[in-house]
Design a protein around this nucleic acid. Sequence first.
DNA 1: TGACTAATAGTCATCCCGACTATAAATGCG
DNA 2: CGCATTTATAGTCGGGATGACTATTAGTCA
Lengths: 241, 241
Amino acid sequence: MTSPEGYDKYAFEPFAVTVDLAVFTLRAGTLQVLLVERGQEPYAGRWALPGGFVLPEESAEQAAWRELAEETGVTDGSGLHLEQLRTYSEPGRDPRMRVVTVAFAALLPDPPAPHGGGDAAQAQWLRFDAVGPLAFDHDRILADAHERVGAKLEYTCLATAFCPPEFTLGELQQVYETVWGTPLDRPNFRRKVLATPGFVEQVPGAARLTGGRGKPAALYRAGGATALHPPLLRPTTEGRP
Amino acid sequence: MTSPEGYDKYAFEPFAVTVDLAVFTLRAGTLQVLLVERGQEPYAGRWALPGGFVLPEESAEQAAWRELAEETGVTDGSGLHLEQLRTYSEPGRDPRMRVVTVAFAALLPDPPAPHGGGDAAQAQWLRFDAVGPLAFDHDRILADAHERVGAKLEYTCLATAFCPPEFTLGELQQVYETVWGTPLDRPNFRRKVLATPGFVEQVPGAARLTGGRGKPAALYRAGGATALHPPLLRPTTEGRP
DNA sequence: TGACTAATAGTCATCCCGACTATAAATGCG
DNA sequence: CGCATTTATAGTCGGGATGACTATTAGTCA
């Protein structure tokens, strides 16, 4: 339908374009997702991913950053991770009208602003493994986002995006274990991370008293590397699809 | 901007939504891309990715399949690979109006229908390494698509999508070498492929006379596996970004 | 002081992979 | 016909990464 004579204004249907955000964080050793409760039909009372319209002068990326700031209160995006996931465009996905949504996945370190108030309904953190059926096709989007994050932990240094600026290797390991839902061997994880140049770098001075029991752990911060070669593969369940 | 009172018709700008396709194939040992020549402004005379508007009752995926059929003449999608790449939504990407495009990457086996004629300008195969500056942001889309395909060869069995139903391991290796632009060691490649269960399965009977010199090679077809564990990594240029 | 906990160090066998050599089976040229 | 050439296939060898473990260190808590 590429029109050789330029755009014909009847050749296309105008769509509403929105962004939807799957925002993950780690709190109390669990993977949590930022959700908003819908106040009216359709799907009144259901939880939904935060999101909103792309404004006339915005890209989807800019809209996603704006929404992320509005819902979480974060002001500086440094250290945050936000990436486009994919676009969902099935005609019936919103019963009211034709809405095409560009989905994003975002990662926040543990104590994110407890969700600042905007105009929208208050956003809340819910345990990922306890989210009921969501509004629209948001279950699917959330599942896709989780799969993407899990996969990217394998071959990127993304895990540090879940951590505060300084962290222990134990905390970093917890990121992998929580997202993947699998325990990892501690010495082997340590060896792998330290053997990857640029993944983490040790903070010269202090060793944090872990707040509790055990030998205090050394502190690290994220290194400059983004890719992880060779990858750190999930314990193979033999031919994962 | 999630409106608690339902959609306000002034709360959003209607956008045009299109799909753009980066269609790759292998011909004569080179990687080729399907392009159309633009007839009018903007970017008159420039090459562009084939694409078009998403129709009112279509998803972007359906629009992409339709466009793929229109431009290439393929009728059965079996064996073909088409996947969503990402969405490009910068406000200025089309000077005429606000157009958001969902980009797709597609792979075709060698002798695809030589590009059937639709309403659109005739599509043509061009060598990937020889494409000049394309219209709009299509250079960027094409580069992203190429990177995505190259990356997916590493950890999926996608390479068979470039091959006819029956192929030799030498042909399969050519897929990797052509997309990656790197020569591979033949015995090692062979060992790796055969050691991955479900990647390929040997065709019982024949051995193809390769049409020319050398020992005839055994024929294989694609197996049932989709993932490649462990991955088949590109010769590391040491810390690829 | 002594269990307990967590971090860190180190060992060992295995598997994967890059580099390489060798053999087999066809073509084509002299 | 014989031999170089070409391509497919088989196998070897060493090193590095990794999974499974054991041991030691340095703290807290009772």
